[in-house]
């Protein structure tokens, strides 16, 4: 008895130490992960001449928001963000609609070449976009879509991944429901819009968040087909901002913060959908 008591007496101290050590380790790692962002935020709050000071300013004791207003208006961040929002919303809506339509056909309809067509859809996942840019650039120019929203969005309005994801979601809908709806005189279109789509909402939300994220983050394509600030998306806008404010790193950093902020908000709100979208990607094979 006595020996056991001795052990339990020793334990709380050792346990507490272990817990403190864990917190310390987690905190150090968190600080490392956040360090680049922290430096960017601090840099954006400095005056231009403070940026190059040595030792570097690690704590903005007199923060100034000037660089934000410069980045926002003179740096065209407002325009870039608007363009990115328009492009990402168009692409997201397009991907969701085309995926619902195709996913529904593959899940609920019988037709010749269904398997073949499904393989075709999956095959699109194997062609990296970078491989197609040469001809796509020609196509967009000959359609007179160079430097337009159409050129920025149309190539991305459908994805094999989306169709696959929604087919899986639709296949999870019980057959009985379909039969019941048929008895009620529902045609396919009514069944799709009234029953199938509402039931597949989680998958649709995951696809939407995933599609928005990838559209917002695109870099190569907008770089290739935009030529002025009226159409540039925020990613290309950052490149532009950095080039034009080379002596004002604080303005560039304010632009970085402004460019990242919408996604931070989006991901805080849609965290669950994002994780579902990403892990759906993990088993999409």
């Amino acid at each position: 008895m006595r020996g056991e008591a001795g052990v339990t007496e020793g334990r709380p101290v050792r346990r507490r130490f272990a817990i403190v050590a864990r917190y310390a380790l987690l905190t150090v790692l968190a600080a490392i992960v956040l360090f680049p962002v922290y430096m960017a935020v601090v840099g954006s709050l400095l005056k231009t001449e403070q940026i190059t000071s040595r030792p570097p300013t690690m704590l903005p004791t007199h923060p100034t928001w000037d660089s934000y207003s410069t980045a926002w208006s003179a740096g065209h961040l407002a325009t870039y963000l608007r363009n990115s929002a328009i492009v990402a919303v168009i692409i997201t809506c397009g991907q969701v609609v085309t995926a619902i339509l195709a996913g529904y056909a593959f899940a609920f309809l019988e037709f010749p070449f269904r398997r073949t067509l499904f393989v075709v859809f999956i095959a699109t996942l194997m062609v990296p976009f970078e491989v197609t840019i040469i001809t796509n650039l020609n196509t967009i120019v000959s359609l007179h879509w160079y430097n337009t929203y159409a050129g920025l969005t149309v190539p991305f309005l459908a994805t094999g991944f989306g169709a696959f994801l929604l087919r899986q979601a639709f296949l999870g809908i019980p057959r009985d429901l379909q039969d019941a709806a048929a008895l009620d005189g529902y045609g396919h279109l009514r069944f799709m819009t009234r029953v199938a789509v509402p039931l597949a909402r989680p998958a649709i939300a995951a696809l939407a968040v995933f599609g928005f994220l990838s559209a917002w983050n695109q870099y190569l394509w907008p770089l290739l087909i935009t030529k002025n600030d009226q159409l540039r998306t925020v990613q290309i806008g950052l490149r532009q901002l950095r080039a034009t404010s080379i002596e004002q790193v604080n303005v560039t950093l304010a632009g970085v913060v402004l460019a990242a902020l919408p996604l931070v908000v989006l991901l805080v709100v849609f965290q669950k959908q994002l994780v579902r979208g990403l892990t759906a990607g993990a088993v999409k094979g």
Binding site: V97, L101, A102, L117
Partner: peptide
């Protein structure tokens, strides 16, 4: 109906993935 539903995706894939590939 099925072909009509997959057509929008197929047009995009054909024009911007398979043809350029």
């Amino acid at each position: 109906l099925a072909y009509a539903l997959v057509l929008p995706s197929l047009v995009v894939f054909g024009a911007f993935i398979f043809y350029p590939f």
